[in-house]
Structure formats: structure tokens, C-alpha cells
């Protein structure tokens, strides 16, 4: 099958990938661009481990063709913070024990990031509804919800800068 050239922006960097029209974005990210933060948990859009941000929307990159990302801006967990300056969500997940095995965590935080962009003052119910597309088997969600709520509170402090 012939390959297409795809130009996209990933975590602020312009990159080029070669992919067959049928190739999934998650595979191109992980195997060509070596961005292994987003994971593959089901390949059927149910689990959300592969969640990334595409032009300001959460998408499950296991059901987006790589060619659909042509010209798009993609943000993955790797683009949210760096070791010297973690994103508030990364800090709060650590502080509130919002993860265990860590497999769902990149997708979960990436989704929570978009949720807070869309709704900076969520109720607990908003958070529970807003992350319901991301499954976790370890935590029972209670501490994930706590982490997201704490991040929202932190981000809403006047002095806070993301």
C-alpha cells in the first residue's frame, strides 16, 4: 500500500511522517515519532489510553487515521510539561495518588487538561462525566477526580501560571 507524506505539528514541533492511508495515528506517534506516552489499550475507542489533543479537542488516536492529522496540531502527555516544570495536573496526580500502574495516566492527564481548558471550574460531577471516556483499572477514579479538582483549584489561583 502506498505511503502518504503527512505534515503535522506535535508538541510544538513540525514533523513529517510517512504512513499508509489505513495507518492509525497512535501507531505513527508511537512507532515513527517515538512518542510512547499515549498507549494502546483496546484499539476500539473504549479505553482512552491513547488520548491526545488534536486542534484543541480530545481524540482517541487509535481511531484517527494518521492522514487525518495532516496539518493538525497534536499535543500528547510529552507536550504538557517537562521534568523541570511539570504541568499542574502532573503535580496533582502525584500529590493525590491519582495513578498506580501508570498505563492510563498519559491519556487521563491529557484528557483532564482539555477538560479544564473547556471548563476551568468543574464540579466533581463535571469531572466524573468529563473523564468517563478514559478507563482506569487500578485507582477506582476517586483519587483521579481528586487530582483533577485540585489542579483546577490551583490553576484558578490568581498567581498561577501554567
Amino acid at each position: 500500500m502506498s505511503k502518504q507524506t503527512i505534515n503535522l505539528n506535535v508538541n510544538g514541533q513540525s514533523v513529517t511522517a510517512e504512513a499508509e492511508p489505513r495507518e492509525l495515528l497512535i501507531h505513527v506517534l508511537r512507532e515513527q515519532l517515538e512518542i510512547t506516552g499515549p498507549h494502546i489499550g483496546c484499539e476500539t475507542t473504549h479505553c482512552g489510553a491513547c488520548t491526545v489533543d488534536m486542534d484543541g479537542m480530545s481524540v482517541k488516536s487509535c481511531t484517527v487515521f494518521a492522514v487525518q492529522a495532516q496539518g493538525k496540531e497534536i499535543t500528547t502527555i510529552e507536550g504538557l510539561g517537562d521534568p523541570d516544570k511539570l504541568h499542574v495536573l502532573q503535580e496533582k496526580f502525584k500529590e493525590h495518588h491519582g495513578l498506580q500502574c501508570g498505563f492510563c495516566t498519559p491519556g487521563m492527564i491529557t484528557r483532564a487538561h482539555r477538560l479544564l481548558e473547556e471548563n476551568p471550574n468543574p464540579t466533581e460531577e463535571d469531572v466524573r462525566f468529563g473523564i468517563a471516556g478514559n478507563l482506569c483499572r487500578c485507582t477506582g477514579y476517586q483519587n483521579i477526580v481528586k487530582s483533577v479538582m485540585a489542579a483546577a483549584e490551583e490553576l484558578n489561583k490568581p498567581e498561577s501560571v501554567t
Partner: peptide, 21 residues
């Protein structure tokens, strides 16, 4: 005690089997 594992997992730097290349 806060978990020492979390730094890599929250930054997408875990190393799972499918990450091995």
C-alpha cells in the same frame, strides 16, 4: 510517602513492553 514511580508515569516516560523498540 508520595510514590517515586509517578515522575516517569505522569510524564509519559514509563517503559512498557510495547514501548520497546
Amino acid at each position: 510517602r508520595k510514590r517515586v514511580e509517578d515522575a516517569r508515569f505522569t510524564q509519559g516516560k514509563g517503559n512498557y513492553v510495547d514501548d520497546i523498540k
